[in-house]
Nucleic acid binder design. Structure first.
Length: 499
RNA sequence: GCCGGGGUAGCUCAGUUGGUUAGAGCGUCUGACUGUGGAUCAGAAGGGCGAGGGUUCGAGUCCCUCCCCCGGUACCA
């Protein structure tokens, strides 16, 4: 009793996961495929530490010497605030600032790894998760942004997402700012710039378009909105004319990129930043078109907002457009799995001058879960597809030879090192995802033969085992006995058959 | 953070107006079947009801506090 009380309950932190071998393997395969695309465009790997000084991450709260509540932070032995990185972009800007004189410019790097955030976990949301970024630092050219879109498109296709099952949407924060300028002035008789917090609130509301619809956005911009749980969300309190302006903007759609640009012209050309934004998008369109990327892959969409703080120009996101049914049979959309944009101001806090930069980031876990639902990643392959069983433990040396023979032939093979009987060995093989079992007792040995059991076939046939198990066991339809010399050949055949 | 709904075996859940040793299905394990996983049959193990306090002769059932989970919402670099 006392001992029971003293025992430690195994627990795991909220939002953190243990990942089994099949998931880790699937993720590694996915990462390898993505890396190949990034490298095809000349990006090189970079690794930075998991821990950074909080001020270098830029996450001290204003008006306070406490770090932002959204990050995992603590004081180190020198009393300095340190924190786990919450993305890969902040460490990149720190790295660039430290090495600005030695880096080739433009500097292009990719980085993959875990990041940590203190957020409420939900379906597909965790406190520790992987991101896979690529960024171009030191180029203000829209060619870099256009390339980012092409890479996002190629990456998704390289992962097996069919054209049409995804879309890269592009917008420009400068266009958005142009609209905000108009909201701020003339049309209301007011004038001057919007209060930054109001501007932010407007962007936040626009960002919710997907979720709450155009009517919802209008409510959020006006007096506020009551959601279905009864909670009231305070509105931005814009005037009706201002709301109408935003609505007009959001309703602009076009199937072609140039079509959207012309449609936007009337709304934002009165604004200098707005015109600049349109011009940048025009350059991106030209580069995309020259690269052979049509609107079926990369489209312009005026409703894209993305992260609020640091984007300064083009913003893009890659979204999966198909629906899936989750475990409860509920229809779900995966939505955005890939996002990025231009952030010309990030290095400034270190160097005092702007270094232009643009890039994008994959939400690895979300995309992986989408690919799993798509059936694009197999999750049942064992690292070694073959188990060499030990029917007769006195023949172990012979079994070791068989295992070596398979390995020498390039086939991963596991020798059963447990102590249980043959029935349990098959169970073990079946549960650990093996494709085949090698069986050899004194019968086979005497005839220079081996038996090879096809576990997957056996699993299928077993549905009709029925009552007559005796006969089933005698026939062993999923098992073949072949000359020992044909072992490797036969196993290869099975592996080919089950992919 | 806020609103709503929940916490009873590994899982899904049942537990009458508070009343004797807390149940089922699935899963697990064992055996029939010591050279064959998936079928069938038989049997076994496994929880003291999220935690703590209170009311009561007596609480999984009532009251209070806290914790956790789920859904929605806010925030999200």
């Amino acid at each position: 009793m006392n001992e029971k009380l003293r025992r430690i309950e195994p627990r795991r932190l909220k939002g953190f996961r243990d990942l089994s071998g099949d998931v880790v393997s699937a993720r590694e395969r996915m990462i390898a495929a993505v890396r190949a695309v990034y490298e095809r465009y000349g990006f090189a790997p970079l690794e930075t530490p998991a821990l950074e000084f909080v001020d270098c991450l830029g996450k001290f709260l204003p008006e306070s010497d406490q770090p932002d509540a959204g990050i995992f932070s603590f004081r180190d032995e020198d009393e300095a605030w340190v924190a786990l990185r919450y993305d890969l972009t902040a460490p990149l800007s720190r790295y660039v600032a430290m090495n600005i004189n030695d880096l080739p410019m433009p500097f292009r790097r990719y980085q993959v790894g875990p990041v940590w955030r203190v957020e409420k976990p939900g379906p597909g949301r965790f406190r520790e998760f992987y991101q896979f970024d690529f960024d171009t630092v030191g180029s203000a050219s829209m060619l870099a942004d256009a390339e980012a879109c092409m890479i996002m498109s190629e990456t998704l296709e390289a992962l097996g997402v069919a054209r049409g099952d995804y879309i890269i949407r592009v917008n420009n924060r400068k266009v958005l700012n142009g609209v905000l300028e108009r909201v701020a002035r003339g049309d209301t008789g007011g004038g001057g710039a919007l209060d930054p917090s109001v501007a932010l609130a407007i962007l936040r509301s626009i960002d919710k378009l997907d979720k709450v619809g155009i009517e919802g956005v209008e409510q959020l911009l006006g007096r506020g909105r009551k959601d279905e749980s009864g909670a009231f969300i305070k509105g931005v309190e814009l005037l009706p004319e201002q709301i109408r302006l935003v609505r007009d903007y959001l309703e602009i759609r076009s199937d072609s990129r140039t079509g959207l640009l012309s449609a936007l012209t009337g709304l934002v050309e009165a604004s200098t930043v707005g015109r600049e934004g349109l011009d940048e998008l025009r350059q991106i369109d030209e580069a995309l078109t020259a690269g052979g990327f049509g609107a079926d892959r990369v489209t312009f969409d005026s409703t894209v907002v993305r992260g609020l703080e640091y984007y300064t120009g083009p913003v893009f996101e890659g979204a999966l457009t198909f629906e899936i049914k989750d475990d409860d049979g509920q229809v779900r959309q995966f939505g955005s799995v890939f996002g990025g944009g231009r952030y010309d101001g990030l290095v400034k806090r270190f160097l005092g001058r702007e270094i232009p930069a643009t890039g994008a980031s994959i939400g690895v876990d979300r995309l992986l879960s989408a690919l799993t639902h798509l059936g694009k990643v197999s999750t049942r392959t064992a690292t070694a597809p073959v188990l060499v069983t030990r029917l007769d433990k006195t023949l172990t040396a012979e079994y070791q030879r068989i295992a070596s023979e398979l390995r020498d032939a390039g086939i991963n093979a596991e020798l059963y090192v447990g102590t249980q009987n043959i029935g349990k060995q098959f169970q073990y093989a079946s549960r650990s995802g093996k494709v085949a079992c090698i069986v050899m007792g004194s019968d086979e040995l005497g005839r220079s033969e081996v038996s090879i059991k096809d576990l997957r076939l056996g699993e299928e046939l077993s549905k009709e085992v029925g009552e007559d198990r005796k006969r089933w066991l005698e026939q062993q339809p999923a098992q073949a006995t072949v000359p020992r010399a044909q072992l490797v050949e036969h196993v290869r055949g099975l592996l080919r058959k089950w992919g």
